[in-house]
């Protein structure tokens, strides 16, 4: 889409704002509406916008597909791993109170970590699905 300067410039202005808003939704989820799911989707939509305006091959160079697969698994592993850490520290599975000396701080830490895991997994899943759908019907360069 090299012939659409308005779209290119506007999306360049919008994409950082979208990503910043995603991070805000991610880490402000404790205080306002939002959380990992929403933040992941918003973050993914920034990349999808990029891939729509510029080319999907350009987007693949920015965020390679393998990185998204790693993110897909590592987010879930982070979530489950926080539970296992809780087990090792003597609590119940997914009981975050034992993560720190103060139960409330432990809960806060645990929630932040698992929400981050949720966000990473959701964003990676959305981008992966989009890559796969949008990449159909054309010859991929590396698969």
């Amino acid at each position: 889409m090299k012939s659409k300067p308005v779209l290119r410039v506007t999306s360049k202005l919008l994409i950082p704002a979208i990503m910043l808003f995603a991070l805000y939704v991610q880490f402000h989820g404790d205080f306002g509406p939002g959380g990992g799911f929403q933040a992941g989707v918003i973050f993914a939509s920034a990349f999808i916008l990029y891939a729509l305006i510029f080319d999907i091959d350009t987007a693949r160079k920015v965020v390679p597909a393998w990185m998204m697969r790693v993110g897909l698994a590592s987010g879930l592993l982070l979530y489950a791993g926080v539970g296992v850490v809780g087990l090792l520290l003597g609590g119940k599975y997914l009981d975050y109170s034992v993560l720190a000396d103060n139960p409330v701080i432990g809960q806060h830490l645990g929630i932040t970590l698992i929400e981050f895991g949720v966000g990473v997994t959701v964003a990676s899943a959305m981008i992966t699905i989009f890559y796969l759908f949008a990449g159909q019907g054309r010859q991929p360069e590396d698969s």
Partner: peptide
């Protein structure tokens, strides 16, 4: 018990941690 002012977050992430883990697994 949990802390965050947004009760939805504490229910989702802490009280119902298993459910959310299941949801993430579904997406995965």
């Amino acid at each position: 018990e949990v802390g965050p002012p947004n009760i939805v977050t504490s229910v989702l992430a802490s009280y119902r941690g298993y459910d959310t883990l299941g949801e993430v697994t579904v997406i995965f």
